[in-house]
Design a protein around this nucleic acid. Structure first.
Lengths: 212, 212
DNA sequence: GCATGGACTGACCGGTCGGTTGGTTATTCG
DNA sequence: CGAATAACCAACCGACCGGTCAGTCCATGC
């Protein structure tokens, strides 16, 4: 008589447990015994379905990327003007990150932990997809003259995505900073960040030619 | 009979080896044996100077933060107008991150790996110091009316620092993206990013085409 | 009825982990 | 000098690691 979280096939239970544990603690800190316990299967059974720990990790990462990419695909970006599309994309991206905190942590961890090796391809894949999508939005706007011709769309895309990732990554830290008021509200953060990227932080009338 | 890399006291050799290895591989992946070998001391000697692995890690992190904070303290921010100061700060911060890649990785890793526990205080300390310094620059500018009154300095600070951290973190990944041209040049990146934060990406009200 | 084969398990393996022990130098000080 | 103490080390410990193995269970097809 399986307990509540069980009931599905062993493989998906293993993958789910692995995703949770790897995301929480990292590759090395999670033992196969721990995964087996969490998935309510025997350790040997994990090795029956996955060749070794590395392969399980890879499979976990791959599944995470697939789900994450699928979610990104669903982003609606067709309607509205350039500014709205950018704002909506940034907000949706941040929401996606926060909704899939485990997956985000997993991918972020993989990015950090591995030199040139192991599963970086998946991280590149999911990151690249997000990135390319955003660059495309920006390119369209630039082609229409809705944004400056002399900015690099890739750079702006990286700034938007990067600031979202930073929000996710450092939220727990700057939550305690007295200067920070937006730690609890990703919507506020996203709106303000996009506003900066769109309009800059200088006063409106001002131009930038005082060089020295 | 110390070999070439030795010669200094064992403690600093241990700390240096630990910093390098922890930064490269993370807490769990580094064994005390590996640190002992790298520092050219016996493992037992490490336990003579540090109570256990956790304490060594904490000491390593603390030393890293001290050196990083010291470097930040040296940032010259007194001269020049607001725009120059911000640009210089961002560039110096990024340079600092890249120069101390080991320390940066160590702190970033700690941020990611630990829930509420362990050495987070140090990360908060070094991050908080950087952050407060930048917020101060922005506040001064805002007080003088050199930047919009309706932007949150803390948010802008987070965007600048966050985009630098993202650059460091994901450089290896987006280096292979076709859209990205700035992966090899932190100076270019920093300059362009500050430009966006200052002026935004929308076209100006009037015709303006300039360098870059 | 029974052979086949995938799903699954408890017991176990060699090896490495963090940490300890008992003892040997090196240094300091009365 | 001798004694005390800090610095240091080889050898060792129990625990746990990733991984294996012999064997059980059970659905399927003949």
């Amino acid at each position: 008589m399986p307990t509540e979280t069980a009931e599905r096939d062993a493989v998906s239970r293993i993958l789910e447990a692995a995703r949770r544990l790897f995301a929480e603690q990292g590759f090395d800190a999670v033992s196969m015994n721990a995964i087996a316990d969490a998935a309510e299967v025997s350790k040997a059974n994990i090795f029956h379905h996955f060749k070794n720990k590395d392969e399980l990790y890879l499979a976990t990462l791959k599944a995470a990327c697939v789900s994450s990419c699928a979610q990104i695909e669903r982003f609606d970006q067709s309607a509205g003007g350039f500014e709205q599309r950018l704002a909506r994309y940034a907000a949706e991206h941040l929401q996606n990150i926060l909704d899939n905190a485990q997956v985000t942590r997993l991918i972020q961890r993989d990015l950090l932990e591995n030199g040139p090796q192991r599963g970086r391809q998946f991280a590149e894949q999911v990151f690249g997809q997000t990135f390319a999508r955003l660059v495309e939005i920006l390119r369209v706007g630039q082609r229409r003259g809705e944004l400056r011709q002399d900015v690099d769309p890739a750079l702006v895309a990286l700034m938007v995505i990067g600031s979202n990732l930073t929000f996710f990554q450092a939220r727990e830290v700057f939550r305690h900073f007295p200067d920070v008021t937006f730690a609890e509200s990703p919507e506020t953060y996203s709106r303000m960040a996009v506003d900066i990227v769109l309009h800059g932080m200088l006063p409106r009338g001002r131009t930038e030619n005082e060089r020295d």
